[in-house]
Design a protein around this nucleic acid. Structure first.
Lengths: 312, 312
DNA sequence: TAAAACATGACAACTAATGTCATGATAAAA
DNA sequence: TTTTATCATGACATTAGTTGTCATGTTTTA
């Protein structure tokens, strides 16, 4: 076996074990202790942060966490990694931020000058815009950890009615529009609710669970129509164009040959409130035929606006 | 010099040069041609995609783009890269998607079993939610390329009034809420407009520019008011919350201690039309005090709605 | 003080890398 | 067609590197 291969094996073994003696490595790989000392010296020269403690109970200790075998990337792949990092730059709080910047440093340093330019360009010509929140999310890492490790959380939470103590089982965390959310099963209310992680004031304690619970993907996929209501709307060309841009309606818009169209599809009753602003905005470009509730809502809103500005 | 170091040097030399003969390498590194052949074989075994053409004018050609020197990552860093990739997974179209999946593969393969589990968990307990668009954005890569390479675009674009031909100079591309946008200077209208990349029907041609133009960062930072109009709005808590999510208003919302707030800031006249839908959606949560034009617009719209549904 | 660990040097035995030479194959240019 | 420039591969002596063994230190702790 080549020296390089053996060094790699020892690198992996050592960084997995963290603390070990030369004798252990020698036994494991059937080589002499002297050679192990020489190998450790090589690895140390190559940048593995390992230090030795002498004397009885001494041995080698690898400082950093487990290392991966060296990986060869192409320049384009490096650019792609920077591109992915760019998508995170509009978040104030992120898990793994330390790791992300160390990866960015390692990569950037090993790029040649022209590739550095490429990366700089990608970073200045592409953005993933988010409202750049000024809100702190100090418990992001803790909640993520609890979700991953399948732990329950007791926490103080700032809700509409003031500070409350909650006992929840997290499903996962997700970011949307610059904020971090935590869908979780609430043991008091006995249903899944959505929390904002920036509103967690403190985590009191966590507790292990033995069984697995739903994960995020499953939760996202579990949308169902509970109270079906017929939505029937006629759309002008412009109405079609705008409805096509709305995630929840996108799939149910039917387009005529002349570019106009209509919607005629069951939706959940809870979505009426959500879709009213859209149809209100569209005005003459969307004539709602059903449900009456939506029409009433829009009229009421229009009356409210007129009332509000009657003096102007 | 050790063999590993020399191989690395040759890897870098070869992948930078792309096409070369064994003799060139031999001269460059003062080694025999025979050894070069052996080295190329080694590099090929290590995964460098290199092929040989025989005969006169033959030589070696490195297929893939330039390789970076091998990089040692920690397990945590690998997880962080997967985390960053996760932030892209709700986009239908992405530049660099091929590179991203090849990086993911290379990394995943070199992880140990427990680390693979960690990555899987992070990917199933963290999400960056976006409306999952079914809208195709076929010209994303082309527009990005044009922006980076400082090229003008002639294109067919689907706008309100139907299909139009546009001649623009791109500033950059950015994603927001699952859609890709292209701010660009419109040569016809002589100002910077915002295009939706999914509404580009075709790119007719591109042309080089010699001078540099603004980039995205500058554009984000260079919001300029040409026809100033005083925007004065009082906001409830909910009004504050929603205005904070609007890119153009985010910075000018002033928040009181009780969570309510107001906007009192000059904006460009052109933005009135753009911000009207927001304020009429907000209804009682936003009382517009100035400009009168905005109020009139909202009243007119409300009257239109009432007229439209007067029979229901 | 003895034992268990790292640190380092010397040297012979072993293994791998290298250069040289030879032969063959292939493709393009003369 | 022949020559030339190229890769491909094998044989073998030479050189360089690696390893094991032994020896000698040092440091720490029971």
């Amino acid at each position: 076996m080549s020296k390089a291969k053996r060094l790699l094996d020892i690198l992996l073994f050592a960084s997995a074990k963290k603390k070990f003696t030369a004798q252990e490595i020698a036994d494991e790989f059937r080589i002499s202790v002297r050679t192990v000392h020489r190998y450790i010296l090589d690895l140390s020269d190559m940048g593995l942060p390992v230090y030795a403690e002498q004397g009885r109970n001494g041995g080698y200790t690898v400082l950093s966490s487990k290392m991966l075998p060296p990986i060869l990337f192409t320049e384009e792949e490096a650019v792609a990694i920077f591109f992915a990092f760019q998508s995170l730059s509009y978040y104030r709080d992120l898990p793994f931020d330390a790791e992300i910047s160390s990866v960015a440093q390692k990569l950037y340093r090993s790029l040649q000058v022209d590739a550095k330019g490429k990366v700089d360009k990608v970073c200045s010509y592409i953005a993933f815009w988010n409202p750049k929140r000024t809100i702190d999310t100090p418990f992001l890492k803790d909640t993520l950890e609890a979700a991953i490790e399948n732990k329950n959380i007791h926490m103080h939470y700032e809700s509409k009615g003031g500070t409350k103590t909650k006992h929840i089982r997290p499903i996962g965390v997700y970011a949307h529009d610059g904020l971090w959310y935590l869908p979780a099963f609430d043991y008091t209310k006995q249903k899944v609710l959505l929390y904002r992680i920036d509103r967690i004031l403190s985590i009191i304690s966590t507790e292990e669970n033995k069984d697995e619970y739903m994960n995020l993907e499953q939760w996202f996929g579990s949308y169902e129509i509970k109270q079906p209501v017929r939505l029937h709307v006629q759309l002008t060309q412009e109405g079609v164009r705008q409805c096509k841009s709305v995630p929840s309606l996108e799939g149910i818009v039917i387009i005529h040959e002349d570019g106009t169209g209509y919607i005629d599809s069951p939706i959940d009753k809870g979505e009426i409130d959500f879709s009213m602003p859209l149809f209100y905005r569209l005005g003459p470009h969307a004539r709602v035929i059903e449900p009456q509730e939506l029409i009433d809502g829009m009229r009421k809103h229009a009356e409210g606006i007129l009332m509000m500005y009657q003096d102007n």
